[in-house]
Design a binder for these strands. Structure first.
Lengths: 199, 199
DNA sequence: GAAAAGTGTCCAATAATTGGACACTCTAAT
DNA sequence: ATTAGAGTGTCCAATTATTGGACACTTTTC
């Protein structure tokens, strides 16, 4: 049993039922929707890990356009879930377009249960990798900004910032901080007093 | 005419010829190969931007395995080119697998020339985006390493590093550096002498 | 080729840093 | 409960560093 939340969206009640039967033995939470209209509110209220999304919700349109547009919607959310698309009327162009729009995988009906679960888990893993990458990039931007400001700082400003950081590292232990900074304890006191850094 | 180098690999001479005819009006350099065996040496000797790769080079095997394995080879090179796969025997599974292995796009024979060129250019753009991301990540790793070492530096070490950086910013102009650092010129001299930083 | 800016060095006044000392307050182990 | 060990806050006098100003000289810039 994996600790992930999955949402399954398909307009065919029978398909939905059988998918739920399979998936609820694998995922801790399985939400089924007969159409994607309530997807926005679902995404707002719950932190879904992966969505298994049918491409057609309308007997009149079998071109998959609806699936693609919902895929786009999902992927432009902040921290979007993984998306695996599923369709009976798939062609190569549709599959390629889906993956280029950010879907993690694409499966055709009829599906193989084991393979489907495997793909869903792989999709979740892929999403987690992307999340890690995102946080690395965020961190990188912060560091870069910090570096940019450092270069136009005064010597004292840089000194004080470093003092504060080391002090923080030492959990406010002045004696240890002084040793780490290789200055005397009095000097550290003087600095803190002079710059109003009271602890 | 775009300043990109493209390599086209297809075992069908007629296809190769007609592709070359189309592409040499768009790309500054078009290399055609009748099979992928000389691809490694080509990649070593030239900086190829995009590869248009057929999936089958053997009348006996039409499952695309060969194309996939060459795709994998290409994508594990350092700074790999963009890859667009082309096939007449494509199925959805093959297309999905290709994109998941890192191909930028997938087209089916028979192809539309305008669409093919469009996809190749989009693939190149995608690769350039990836290159930018890579360099951002490299830079991020450097900054992070720097930050990690900073936290265990002595106050004087941090000071001196900052002095050197500002000095560098000022192109070695001591007077300007002293102003930026907000210390007197003599103090800057003393530091440089004391720490053997001669310029 | 003159003006402006930068360099290298000196000086004495001022300010910061230093090690050592002392009384004190925690805190963790006995 | 007692106590040793570590940390704090403050003092001091000796040492060091920083400062602004000054000067002759070189380099840049217009």
């Amino acid at each position: 049993m994996y600790p992930y939340k999955i949402a399954v969206i398909d307009d065919n009640q029978a398909v939905l039922k059988s998918l739920k039967l399979v998936l609820k033995r694998v995922f801790v939470s399985v939400v089924t929707l007969p159409n994607p209209n309530s997807l926005p509110s679902l995404l707002e209220s719950e932190e879904i890990d992966v969505i298994l999304l049918d491409m057609n919700f309308n007997a009149q349109r079998l071109d998959g356009e609806e699936g693609i547009s919902w895929l786009k919607y999902i992927k432009q959310q902040p921290n979007p879930p993984a998306v695996v698309l599923i369709t009976a009327f798939g062609d190569i162009g549709l599959a390629v377009q889906s993956l280029k729009e950010g879907a993690e995988d694409f499966v055709s009906k009829p599906w193989d249960n084991d393979e489907l679960v495997e793909k869903l888990l792989a999709a979740i893993e892929k999403r987690e990798t992307r999340q890690r990458l995102d946080s690395t990039l965020r961190e990188a931007r912060q560091l870069k900004a910090r570096w940019e400001t450092t270069r136009q700082m005064t010597l004292y400003e840089v000194e004080n910032r470093h003092i504060l950081e080391v002090l923080n590292e030492c959990g406010g232990n002045l004696a240890e901080a002084a040793v780490r900074l290789n200055i005397s304890r009095q000097t550290l006191y003087n600095r803190l007093k002079k710059y109003g850094i009271m602890i």
